Lab assay of single mutants.
Amino acid sequence: DVEPGKFYKGVVTRIEKYGAFINLNEQVRGLLRPRDMISLRAENLNVGDEIIVQAIDVRPEKREIDFKYIP
């Protein structure tokens, strides 16, 4: 289970104008929005990159997770 405030290692699987999709594993995926990329620009991300993200909002009923990148 993903808990708000905890840090996780994930892999960038898709990049859109509104953010990057980060997979923690095959069943868990969330969104890293540009406003939550402190000191990281979306254009510096590539599909396949491994990054550490913090879960900031977890909505299990919608199967949605928002992440924040903190260097």
Rank of each mutant, 00 (worst) to 15 (best):
E26I: 13
D49S: 05
Y8V: 02
V53H: 00
D1V: 14
R59K: 06
I51K: 00
Y69W: 09
S39C: 15
L32Q: 02
D57V: 13
V53L: 07
L31G: 02
L45V: 10
K17G: 08
I70F: 11
L45S: 00
I38F: 05
M37W: 06
E16S: 13
I70T: 10
V47Y: 02
I56L: 12
R14T: 06
G19W: 10
R14E: 04
I70V: 14
E64I: 11
E16P: 01
I56H: 05
R63C: 13
L31R: 06
N25Q: 06
G5R: 03
D57K: 15
V11W: 12
R14L: 08
E64D: 04
Y18L: 07
M37Y: 06
I22P: 00
D49N: 04
E43Y: 10
E50K: 11
E16I: 07
V2S: 03
L24P: 01
D49P: 00
Q54L: 15
R35W: 06
K68V: 10
R29T: 13
R29P: 05
E64H: 10
E64C: 11
I38S: 12
D36R: 04
I51S: 00
R33E: 04
V28S: 04
E61D: 14
V58D: 02
G30Y: 02
D49W: 06
Y18K: 07
R14G: 07
G10L: 05
I22H: 00
G5H: 05
A42S: 12
F21N: 01
I56G: 03
E16L: 10
E16C: 12
E61S: 11
E16N: 14
Q27E: 12
K9N: 06
E43P: 08
G30H: 02
L31P: 04
D66F: 15
E3T: 13
D66Q: 09
V12A: 00
I15F: 03
I56V: 10
G5L: 06
E26M: 11
R59V: 03
G48T: 01
K17Q: 10
G10W: 14
I51M: 03
R29N: 08
K9F: 09
V12L: 04
E3C: 11
D49M: 13
R35D: 11
D57S: 15
I70R: 06
V11E: 03
L45P: 00
D49R: 03
K17C: 11
Y18S: 06
G19E: 06
D1E: 12
V53S: 00
I56A: 06
L40Y: 04
P60G: 08
V11D: 00
I51F: 03
N44T: 13
P4H: 07
E43Q: 10
I70W: 13
R14N: 04
P34F: 15
L45F: 06
R14W: 07
E64G: 07
D36H: 12
I51L: 09
F7M: 08
R59P: 02
P34C: 14
N46K: 15
P71Q: 10
K6W: 05
K17P: 14
D49E: 06
K9M: 08
P4C: 13
I65P: 04
K9G: 02
Q27A: 12
V2G: 02
R41L: 14
E64R: 08
E50L: 14
I52E: 04
V53C: 03
R35P: 06
D36W: 10
A20D: 01
G48M: 02
P60Q: 08
Y69G: 03
L31H: 04
F7Y: 11
G10H: 00
G19A: 05
F7C: 13
E26K: 14
I15G: 00
E16M: 13
P71W: 10
G5W: 04
V11P: 00
D49H: 04
P4F: 08
E61W: 05
K68R: 15
L45Q: 00
Y18M: 07
T13R: 03
I38H: 13
R35I: 11
F21A: 01
Q54M: 15
Y8W: 02
I22E: 01
N25R: 06
Y18E: 10
F7D: 02
T13L: 02
G5N: 06
K6F: 07
Y8M: 01
E50Y: 15
I51A: 00
K62A: 10
K17M: 08
Y8H: 01
L32I: 08
I22S: 00
G19F: 10
I52H: 04
R59H: 05
